[in-house]
Design a protein around this nucleic acid. Sequence first.
DNA 1: GTGAAAGCGCTAACAT
DNA 2: ATGTTAGCGCTTTCAC
Lengths: 360, 360
Amino acid sequence: MPVTINEIAKAAGVSVATVSRVLTNNDHPVNEATRQRVLNLANEMGYRPNMMARSLKTDRTLTIGIIVDNIISPFTPTMIRGIQDHLKQAEYFSVVINSDWNPETETRAIHDLISRSIDGIIFVESFLREPNPTLDLANKPYVFVHRIFGNVHRNSVGVDERYGAQLAMDHLIKLGHRRIGFINGPAGWHASDTRYLGYKETLAQNNIPFDPELVVEGDWEVQSGFPAVKHFLGLSARPTALFAANDFMALGAIYALQDEGLSVPGDIAVVGYDDREIASLSRPTITTVRMPCYEMGEASAKLLLGMIANQARSAEPVKVQGKLIVRESCGAEKGKRTADTYHSQTTPRRLLMRKRRPST
Amino acid sequence: MPVTINEIAKAAGVSVATVSRVLTNNDHPVNEATRQRVLNLANEMGYRPNMMARSLKTDRTLTIGIIVDNIISPFTPTMIRGIQDHLKQAEYFSVVINSDWNPETETRAIHDLISRSIDGIIFVESFLREPNPTLDLANKPYVFVHRIFGNVHRNSVGVDERYGAQLAMDHLIKLGHRRIGFINGPAGWHASDTRYLGYKETLAQNNIPFDPELVVEGDWEVQSGFPAVKHFLGLSARPTALFAANDFMALGAIYALQDEGLSVPGDIAVVGYDDREIASLSRPTITTVRMPCYEMGEASAKLLLGMIANQARSAEPVKVQGKLIVRESCGAEKGKRTADTYHSQTTPRRLLMRKRRPST
DNA sequence: GTGAAAGCGCTAACAT
DNA sequence: ATGTTAGCGCTTTCAC
């Protein structure tokens, strides 16, 4: 049913070789008139290349695999979008597979992807964090993008967590705060340890003495903001600001402060980390450091495409930086709501929908 | 480099036909001893079928296309996950493409997917809502799954919004409420109109007179909860409960009520719709009707796979039902926090990560 | 500048 | 029960 180059060749009165040369923009010279004739015919006849046949010959599919932890994870879809947008300009497609952090599933996925002759793989928050012999043997390039573990490998994209923490701390310090409580994530996590580093470094840079009493460890969840606040309020010299290593703990802290009758940011300023949806829905909305998921995705796709193009087996690791999003929980102009107050991060599509809403 | 059936045939001392028959579980009879020999050899030699070659021959790729509005949309990843989980048991893969609600992008995507010989397409929240001649001509089955427009086509999956609204209303009525304010979405939206229907029907079923003063129209956003509450509080006979057509407006209503010094659910009960993440993070957490995204995805994959298997061009439309999630904003036992209070919906993965966290 | 032909790895008639 | 062989649609040497 679908049109093949054979039929076009017949219609144009040339050989399939010529048609192929025209249609693939081969550097082999082709008479300009012939080229046009073929091009027009292909267009008229509605020719669509059969990628299977092409791939069988060239062993390239213009498709890469994206092995993600779980497409439902909060940061993952944005990373995928970053990858896909970058792939698009190179006409690449992507197959998305969930690994659920299961090494067997991941191995299986790798094999299946090789079976499908994909041109490379991006591992997003993978369990796997080391060179993979199967892929190396199949000569398929791959890169890692890791929020959780940072740069895990030469070919990987990570986040500059120290920079992110410094962004938050600088903001607080510029607002005049000198006693800043830090609600960290559990020790041993890359994110906790590096953000902690950023916290301490920024204090040092500003000649503010480090006080271990101002650091508590949470478990990333909202609840852990409560004991943290209890601790801080019990200190003889209370902090005037709080930096939480994620938005959930920041939210818990805000709730706890409000329970004590304290106002945020009036009495105590709060900064979070991640820029989860809640940060723009809570009261007050939360100043935070945005996790640059989209950019990480883009960077990883760029890395992989580069490796594919250069037949390279390795690439320089990339570290992406987040940015500070100032909202009501500290630093926003008094009485003035920030632009996205109470707006979900998905507003753009809603607007789009409204415009195109059916008249019925 | 990779092992082919040719090499296995040579190694086993049989023809490629036999190897193919064994490896594809063809019904053609094969001697059991030979079968075992081939199987072992394939295993030892690390044989992986070349899907490109197989597909070129069979015109089946075990891959479907998923054209989504935008993978970052709040409901979309869950739908994709539902699709993928169902596909998995049939060993199907999926290529995900963002259409951004752009008809040209969608058309382009359809062509590209046909080029790649995919076996079918699932349109998730697509702009396209009608039979597609290109796909029909290519004889590729497709189904729609639409949260926004409901069942748009014979081969489609929608949500039973009336049922969802009834769930919310029944809950409120069982709690003793008889004056229930309804904050609807904008008129003309399928979701608004059908939820409104459910609202009115449930009132009728319970012999509660319908009072147009108890219905206001919001714009789906948090802000629109504020004027709604202002209106309700201005009535001579105030409602004792509010049903908002989505969680964002429910949140805005809660904020507005709290601004007036009223307690939720103490003074006024509130029910939302969708079960967005915010519903389990706000104070109080919000009782709501869960949008059955995962189930919709599953249902659509089931529909499509069925059509592929039966060579069918059409299938019975499916309507999926959501369910009520009771939280603090009404109906939860006094003083007792519901299980997911302050927990994000992504907790499971976090727990998983914690267990497998590196010791360093 | 053009064409003939080999062949990518596999499946499925059609033999035997 | 097994083998031979013709392609699937395309790219790419190699020859002209």
